[in-house]
């Protein structure tokens, strides 16, 4: 077992003990989907690739690949971003 996974487990236990939401302790993104037309990603780490059919967003440890049609970036801020358009697929890819 790698050190990183061990550390993560410890953090999660601590979070449960102190009743703090996991996403804050573990620095995870919070992703909200509104049907297949809008997606809100909080706590992202930047955009890797952007075309109308494909958006790759860097997260804490992995990458989120969003595929769809006519994708547009609604609101680009350091903490959150909104992806609008017809979303057809989501997948998380480890670096």
């Amino acid at each position: 077992m790698s050190l990183r996974v061990q550390r993560q487990r410890l953090q999660k236990k601590l979070a449960n003990l102190l009743e703090i939401p996991d996403d804050i302790v573990l620095d995870l993104p919070r992703i909200t989907l509104l049907g297949n037309m809008q997606m809100l990603i909080e706590n992202h780490k930047g955009i890797v690739e952007y075309t109308g059919e494909r958006v790759r967003v860097r997260l804490n440890r992995d990458e989120l690949l969003i595929s769809g049609k006519g994708l547009a970036l609604g609101n680009l801020q350091a903490e959150e971003l909104i992806i609008e358009g017809e979303i057809t697929g989501l997948s998380f890819e480890m670096n």
Binding site: I47, A78, L81
Partner: peptide, 28 residues
């Protein structure tokens, strides 16, 4: 490297909105 520009903008807190991709370039 448009994506790089977008990331830089977010970092520097330059607000971009209604970003659309059309014909190898973006409109914002």
């Amino acid at each position: 490297a448009v994506e790089k520009l977008i990331n830089l903008c977010m970092y520097k807190e330059i607000l971009l909105w209604d970003v659309k991709y059309h014909g190898d370039s973006i409109y914002t």
